[in-house]
Amino acid sequence: MKTVKLLPLVLLVFLAGCELIGPSVRVSGPKVIVDGNSSNNGTHCPPGQAKKGKC
């Protein structure tokens, strides 16, 4: 009779140390390529300013 009461306790002790890990997903960030051969040589002119002739 003692073994019947002791068996669930032993099973709980063994199961308490277990860890269930679900599936995981790893997502990397976007890869950005900066082209150094631009036609405007690093200058930026907003559209409204270009129409006014300030660039």
Rank of each mutant, 00 (worst) to 15 (best):
E19M: 12
V27G: 13
C55A: 05
N37M: 02
L15G: 10
A16T: 10
L6F: 10
S28R: 06
I21M: 10
L15P: 06
N41L: 12
C55L: 08
K51S: 12
V27L: 15
L7F: 07
N41S: 08
H44S: 04
K5V: 04
P23K: 15
K54W: 03
M1P: 12
A16S: 12
G36Q: 14
V32R: 07
P23W: 15
K5D: 02
I33H: 08
G42M: 05
P47H: 02
V32W: 07
K5A: 01
K5M: 04
I33E: 06
P30T: 04
A16W: 11
P23L: 15
L7K: 03
V10I: 03
V32M: 08
T43K: 15
V13M: 14
C55N: 04
M1W: 06
V4R: 10
C55E: 03
N37A: 02
E19L: 13
C55V: 11
C45K: 02
P46R: 00
T43F: 15
G53L: 07
A50S: 00
L7N: 08
V27H: 14
G36I: 11
L6T: 11
L12D: 10
V25G: 05
K54M: 04
L15E: 04
V4F: 12
V34R: 00
V25I: 12
C45L: 01
K52H: 01
P46D: 00
L20T: 04
G22M: 04
K5E: 03
F14I: 14
C18V: 14
K31E: 12
K54Y: 09
S39W: 09
G53V: 07
N40E: 03
T3H: 09
L7S: 05
V34P: 00
G42E: 06
P46A: 00
G48Q: 15
L15V: 13
G42R: 11
S28Y: 05
K31W: 13
V34I: 00
L6Q: 08
L11G: 06
G48T: 15
T43L: 15
P30F: 05
K52F: 01
P30Y: 06
P46Y: 00
D35R: 00
L12A: 10
C55M: 04
L12W: 13
K52R: 07
V4D: 07
P30S: 03
K31Q: 12
P47T: 01
V25K: 09
